[in-house]
Amino acid sequence: MDQWAVKQDGNKPNLIRKPSKQHIREEWVGRVYTALCILFLIVTIIAIVYFVASRGLSTFIKNGVSIGDLLTGLKWAPEGEPALFGALPFIFGSFSTSLLAALIAAPLGCCAAIFMTQIMPGAGRRYMQPVIELLAGIPSVVYGFVGLSVIVPMLRNIFPGQGIGLAAGALVLSVMILPTITTIATDALAALPSGLKEGSFALGATRWQTIYRIVLPTTLPALLTGVVLGMSRAFGEALAVQMVIGNAPHIPRSLFESTSTLTSVITLSMGNTITGSAHNNALWSLALILLAMTFIFVFIVRFLERRNKR
């Protein structure tokens, strides 16, 4: 305390001040405000998980459907006699569309990112990245409609079958997840320490050798993170897929035959079923499966990020 007193007595400019009351108040206001935001988020997440789980689990508890039947059953006839709830075709549909979409979009996205960061860094990042990110802003119903009007007739003319199906769904999804994969890959490649590349060039490696020997292996976990995030977006996309996939509750015999995904069957039937009925509860169970899958995707991303840091 004396110290302060001396400084003030000495008629000098008041350089070191006591933490004023205002600052203490600001500190507390900031702390309480951020804590409330976090609390709000946590409560929301818990509430959603609880809500979906309570509805989704009542299929097994109240309606007496066994978990095994739901996960491995091949027949979905919720309004039939007897009602059957086999969701395997939907699980298969969701996985195959999002995997196929990732297979199409991953090479495209990663190569676009390499072009924008390694080959043409200036114009690439300034003009091309905004264009690709624009894809993320297009509403999914527009994707669905374009898919239905362009991709489905095209597939129908080229391949045998109805045009509608897994292939159409995967193509639409691959365009939708392209911005996610490209943006994350671009950021990862741009964040690569320049010393690595310069070292490689100094050793006499060509630009292409540097890219596939040094740049790609080093950024691989980050690139995979982008692909997994893209897949999880594809997994959760409902509207665009529902419009082009056909929605038959069966595992398709070809890429061009009507099938369903978890999301498409939920959006198709949710509004038409009575809350609390077995059919409605079964849809909530599907939502629960989706939620569980999303958590798994998040864990994979976390795991990849940890490896990335090492």
């Binding site: 039939g80 006699e81 109805q162 056909g246 929605n247 038959a248 069966h250 035959e257």
Partner: peptide, 12 residues
């Protein structure tokens, strides 16, 4: 009542 057949398209 009918079942959803393999290959049938359903749209809402």
């Amino acid at each position: 009542k009918t079942e959803d057949l393999q290959g049938a398209i359903q749209e809402d």
